[in-house]
């Protein structure tokens, strides 16, 4: 299997495809840094960092400026595309190229082929997501001047991240990779089912557009949730909370929504929890960021959800591939 991972990685890194994806990541990083440089003030205020109980370093990743979107939003688009592009022709290109039967007549288990490809893809996504996060963090450390915002700076750049910030960023990195792995698993599934690469690229892309652009970005998910479970002012509070919960469940059908909620809790801990809070309850809320353990508790189901989605996609493609006939014709 090591041999297959090695070859797949070499293929990924030498391909034009990878170069294009990497450029995409660099654009995300550039946009993120630029947005952060311009808009970090608002982000700092929003995260209460100015009052010194927020997270200055994390603000680098959550700043937006005018029309330039925040880094995390760009990553939420770039990573799924990366996953899809890395996986969509994993198996069917071997089949159409006539290399599958040659490969499988070597002393390797059939599952090593698909496992090796999946792992090589995850390694590639890990490198991309890691590079993007480290680049933004690194530029933040050397470039930003926060003195105008009332910080006592000993040097230039944002203050070095606290241990909690490092853990939060690392968790964000982990869920990003898991999210990318889900989309790669999905496109690999279609690469097993479809004989032609065009189909196995198109379908995961369409699914992504539905789940991200329609469901989350354009608010179709919200509209559907509202239609299914409308919150009526006339009903009592308990029913209203129930209806709101139902709406949230419907929204969470989209993996993109899950991902967004998860990273919002990790990187913007000041944002309230994920459930419904009544005005009466809100009065008693302490204006502190939620603690790391509480954040973890809040996103644990999200993480499990995304891991299991990836596992399900992978398992289905695995089973189909194991049972598939090898002959090309």
């Amino acid at each position: 299997m090591i041999a297959i991972i090695r070859k797949e990685l070499a293929d990924h890194f030498n391909s034009i495809r990878f170069l294009v994806l990497f450029l995409l990541v660099l654009v995300a990083v550039g946009g993120g840094i630029y947005a952060a440089k311009q808009g970090i003030r608002e982000a700092l205020e929003a995260s209460r960092a100015v009052t010194e109980d927020g997270f200055v370093f994390l603000s680098l990743f959550t700043s937006s400026w005018g029309d330039i979107p925040i880094f995390t939003m760009v990553i939420a688009i770039v990573i799924p595309i990366t996953g899809i592009v890395l996986g969509f022709d994993a198996i069917n290109s071997e089949r159409t190229g006539g290399t599958l039967s040659r490969l499988l007549s070597q002393p390797v288990y059939r599952d090593s082929v698909i496992n090796g490809k999946f792992l090589a893809g995850i390694i590639t996504i890990t490198i991309m997501a890691g590079t993007a996060i480290l680049l933004v963090g690194g530029f933040g450390l050397i470039w930003f001047d926060l003195r105008p915002y009332g910080f006592n700076m000993t040097g230039i750049g944002v203050p070095f991240p606290t241990p909690e910030e490092i853990i939060r960023l690392f968790l964000y990195f982990v869920i990003t990779v898991v999210y990318g792995a889900f989309w790669m698993g999905l496109s690999m599934l279609f690469s097993v089912v479809f004989r032609r690469a065009a189909g196995s690229l198109l379908i995961p892309m369409v699914i992504f557009i539905i789940f991200y652009f329609f469901w989350v970005f354009l608010g179709f998910g919200g509209a559907i949730a509202n239609a299914v479970s409308p919150i009526t002012g006339s009903s009592d509070i308990a029913t209203q909370i129930q209806q709101a919960g139902m709406q949230q469940t419907i929204l969470r059908l989209s993996p993109s929504y899950l991902f967004r909620e998860a990273y919002a809790v990790l990187l913007l801990p000041v944002a309230k929890g994920l459930g419904v809070i009544t005005v009466a309850q809100a009065r008693f809320m302490v204006a502190n960021p939620i603690s790391l353990t509480q954040s973890l508790l809040a996103i644990w189901p999200h993480l499990i959800g995304m891991v299991s989605l990836s596992a399900i996609c992978f398992a289905i493609s695995y089973i189909i591939f194991m049972k598939q006939e090898i002959r090309a014709t």
């Binding site: 090695r6 006539g98 290399t99 007549s105 070597q106 002393p107 390797v108 090309a328 014709t329």
Partner: peptide, 30 residues
Amino acid sequence: KRIVGYLPEEVGFYDNLTARENLRFIADLN
């Protein structure tokens, strides 16, 4: 498979690799 060499009817190679690299990959698998 360790002792049998098989030449399929429609043999194909990884387009982006050289002849030597293609063979090296198969040797690596063995």
